[in-house]
Simulated scan of single mutants.
Amino acid sequence: MKNAFASLLTLALLALVTGCKGGDKDPKAPAGDAAKPEASAPQAGGNALTIKGSDTMVILGQQWAEAFMKANPDQRIQVTGGGSGTGIAALLNGTTEIAMSSRSIKPAEAQQLQTRLKVQARETPVARDGVTFYVHESNPVRALSIDQLQAIYLGDVKNWKEVGGSDARIVVYSRENSSGTYVFVKDEVLKGEDFTSEALTLPGTAAVVNAVAKEKHGIGFGGAAYGKGIRELAVKVGNEEVAPSEANIQSGLYPLSRDLFFYTRGEPSGAAKTFIDFALSPEGQSIVTRVGYFPLKK
């Protein structure tokens, strides 16, 4: 019995010693490392600069990001769309460093940022654009006044023959209400009134262009850079038809000219500032031209 008891006691002591050593754990490792084996590992996307918002600007943002990362291979940038409102909301809740917006920030949004985070929204114009109305290439209409566009998008004019076109029902395409371009058209064309309930809402400018390119009686709107495969309408100003050309948009003669913006929480710093400086540099502004928008005035 004594021998058996001694053997059991020896085995127990060996097990206790082995357990205290921690198996394969390095005895020189600091206490607590075993419980957090990935404590020092960088989190996925943790060092990426996030840019979110305007679908009008998403291609431009991606082009800027690609050029910037090529020159700065250690910097990762994530660019996503969703609409200007979505980008500004992400800025408010801290999930993006830069919000892209094709409209100015609303006073209520700026106040939320001030109240919630105690910082002011910093607005940086980064490019020029002209909101453009698109029609099918076969449509005989070449220009419409703001009043005519308003009547179409309010649903007061439903047939192309009422504005100089063929006898056909107008198929109206619009953007979702989180879009900065939607807000711009509502403010500048509809004068704050609501879009017709017959307007077909699409999730992005590219989708609007694609729809109008396939629907010969359609009309839609979006940024100038997306006007491919369709025809852009001039806007009648008095007796003059003003096209959304670079010269007219740069000068503001085109009545639906606008700036495209970056918004940050206070003055940008670190990677955000470096990226914004790049977007405003001669190289960055040349990308604006290549994408199809217009550089800022020098």
Rank of each mutant, 00 (worst) to 15 (best):
A127N: 04
D129Q: 01
G130I: 09
T132W: 05
T132Y: 03
T132M: 06
T132P: 09
T132N: 07
F133D: 03
Y134L: 09
H136P: 02
S138T: 14
N139I: 03
N139Y: 03
P140H: 08
V141K: 08
R142L: 14
L144E: 09
S145Q: 09
S145W: 09
I146R: 15
D147I: 13
D147T: 15
D147N: 15
L149K: 09
A151G: 07
I152Q: 01
I152A: 05
I152E: 02
Y153I: 04
Y153L: 07
L154P: 06
K158Y: 08
K158E: 11
N159H: 10
N159D: 11
N159E: 07
E162A: 12
E162S: 13
V163D: 03
V163F: 05
V163I: 02
V163S: 01
G165C: 01
S166K: 14
D167S: 05
A168T: 08
A168G: 08
A168Y: 07
A168K: 09
R169E: 14
R169L: 14
V171W: 02
V171T: 10
S174P: 08
R175Q: 14
R175E: 12
R175I: 09
S179L: 00
G180R: 00
Y182T: 03
V183N: 15
D187Q: 06
L190H: 02
K191P: 03
G192L: 01
D194Y: 04
F195W: 00
T196A: 00
T196Y: 01
T196Q: 01
T196L: 02
E198Q: 04
E198R: 05
A199N: 05
A199Q: 04
A199D: 00
T201D: 02
T201E: 10
T205K: 02
A206S: 11
A206Q: 11
A207I: 02
V208F: 00
N210C: 08
A211Q: 03
V212Q: 02
V212A: 03
V212E: 05
A213H: 08
A213Q: 08
A213S: 11
K214M: 10
K216N: 14
H217P: 12
H217M: 14
H217Q: 15
G218S: 10
G220N: 05
F221W: 13
F221R: 13
A225T: 12
A225C: 11
Y226G: 13
Y226V: 13
G227C: 11
G229C: 11
E232Y: 12
